[in-house]
């Protein structure tokens, strides 16, 4: 109650933070003195005045310099909040932006392991082993690897790929976006009748996070 009474005065004051602090300290100790002497908060309000009136009288008594300080501090506070909001927006934009770096420098992935895993996925695609691919994939992706979707995808590229003839150079990169880190592999594979580009991504648990063939 004592705090509430004093705060009601304080929040209405149009003065510098320094003066506000001093007035708060003083009013708190004054109310406390009254309460300690056995008076109730109602008596205090009767004797000291309603918070709105005290604040109004204070505001009327402040010098022009004090009001200038109040306005300056208020403006500075606004600018500070604005700067903080801008900084947050910049950080959020940076966080949302994809950032890439060489997989060899990555701390979360081992380039060789990623390449091996990618080759394993390619072999599974070639063998139409969609069930194993489904197991390797993250849960949100697993639904895409149904038998129909899988075969349809392969059919679009070519009805009969033929045997694998050559595995091209694997290009790898680490991509970070929205707080998620992925290892991305792109490789061209030549078959007897078609040539297919695989883009395969893994998350840090080495689960399959994306698979595109074209």
């Amino acid at each position: 109650m004592q705090k509430k009474y004093v705060n009601k005065v304080i929040k209405r004051l149009r003065c510098s933070g320094k003066k506000r602090k001093e007035i708060k300290k003083q009013l708190t100790s004054e109310v406390e003195a009254a309460l300690v002497s056995g008076e109730g908060i109602d008596t205090v309000v009767t004797k000291m005045g309603r918070p709105e009136e005290i604040a109004e009288e204070f505001n009327r008594s402040f010098s022009q310099e004090e009001e200038k300080r109040y306005r300056r501090e208020k403006r500075n506070r606004f600018l500070l909040i604005l700067a903080a909001v801008l900084l947050l927006l910049i950080l959020a934009a940076y966080w949302a932006m994809p950032k890439s770096r060489s997989l060899a420098e990555s701390r979360g992935f081992q380039e060789e392991a990623v390449k091996e895993k990618a080759e394993e996925i390619i072999s599974l695609v070639e063998a139409d082993d969609y069930a194993v691919i489904q197991e390797e994939a993250i849960s949100s992706l697993a639904g895409y690897f149904s038998r129909e979707a899988f075969l349809e995808g392969k059919e679009i590229i070519g009805p009969d790929w033929g045997k694998r003839e050559a595995l091209g150079t694997m290009y790898t990169v680490e991509v970070t976006q929205l707080g998620m880190k992925l290892a991305l592999v792109q490789v061209k594979v030549a078959y007897e009748h078609v040539s297919v580009t695989y883009t395969i991504s893994f998350n840090q648990k080495m689960e399959l996070a994306g698979l595109y063939i074209q």
Binding site: I23, Q26, L27, T46, K47, M48, G49, R50, E53, I54, A55, E56, E57, F58, R60, S61, S63
Partner: peptide, 16 residues
């Protein structure tokens, strides 16, 4: 009875 809340501002002014 200073119910108009005048004492504290007066003290600050006298000090200024």
């Amino acid at each position: 009875l200073l119910k108009e809340g005048t004492l504290y501002p007066i003290l600050y002014r006298l000090e200024d």
